[in-house]
Amino acid sequence: MNVLITGASGGLGRAFAAECGRRGYNLFLVDINAQGLAALKSGLERRFSVCVATMTCDLTGEASVDALLAHIDRCRIRFDMLLNVAGVDYEGGFLERKRDDIVRIVSLNNEATLRITHAVLSRRDERRRFSLVFVSSLASLYPMPLKATYAASKRFLLDLAVALGHELRDKNVRVLALCPGGMVTTRQAMQGIAAQGFWGAVTTNPLETVAKRTIEGVLHGKHVYIPGFFNRTLSFIGTLLPRSWVAAAIYRRWGKAQKQWLAKETAHGETAA
């Protein structure tokens, strides 16, 4: 089994890589962070003695992706699985963010994902089953004020995954959209979730379990995976209500949370200074 993972050196990418390594899959890891890739490669090789190849690549750049594909073609690699993990979000409301940042959300989360997915799918071995995973988000299920662009970009991936799943079923391709809630991927995420207290703890999905069940899910032909009972219930209730009601409720809750968070941040800043 040959697996390509984009955004491999981030928190979720590393969890996926470790899960694949444990299953004995060969890995091709892509990320923009060269140092992180090198460390992850050595870690996986030491632990699982699997074959690991890496390549630094900015997926938003046409030339950079062409170089990646040329390298794949030179090595004559055929993939059996693609995990689209690479993605980005920036903090702040729509008008508080820089224009370039807003656009970058779509160019990485959507444009770059399409580019690599099309390229890798057309390089698959058609006689074998192919597994395709898009990392969407719980945010994809509703319109989300204060995270509008991000949520919309994740909605794009969710719809794409479900549609492609049906379109490519005869071609022996299984597609899964992963819609996780908060995950503890970085020190900042950990601080954020710890600060949220009880609600942070119940909506947080354990990284190792998400990685394991996602791989199991796509191998068993599952279409959408929302980890966690609480999140599944929440998303089900959300589908029963009008979308604009949900958006308004989210805005109230997040607006408050953000104010508290900002107040805390500034207080911390003052004590540190």
Binding site: R14, A15, A18, Q35, L40, R46, V184, M190, L207, E208
Partner: peptide, 11 residues
């Protein structure tokens, strides 16, 4: 740690 988190090596 309350949660599973990994280092650069994936440990």
């Amino acid at each position: 740690r309350s949660w599973y988190m990994t280092t650069e090596e994936g440990y």
